[in-house]
């Protein structure tokens, strides 16, 4: 698995459950690749930020 494939799966992980094989290959890749680990954290952060953005637009 390369970074292009890993990042695509990390994005899809937010939209569907990954299968066992995908989880394993992704796990192996992110263990050795700091850039994809960061990407993983950041797309999750995008989700958190989006939720807060909607809340802010309702409440400020």
């Amino acid at each position: 698995m390369n970074c292009k494939q890993a990042t695509q799966l990390l994005s899809e992980k937010l939209d569907r459950p990954l299968n066992a094989k995908e989880k394993v290959s992704l796990g192996v890749h992110t263990t050795i690749c700091v850039s994809c680990r960061r990407f993983s954290h950041q797309v999750e952060e995008l989700r958190t930020i989006s939720k807060r953005y909607v809340e802010e637009s309702k409440s400020e």
Partner: peptide
Amino acid sequence: IDALFTENGHWQKSERPRKWDDPDHGV
């Protein structure tokens, strides 16, 4: 996609995600 990744699918050096420091840059 072509701009972000090399031909063999790794991050271009200049495009690699950097660490996000949220504490100081509170959202």
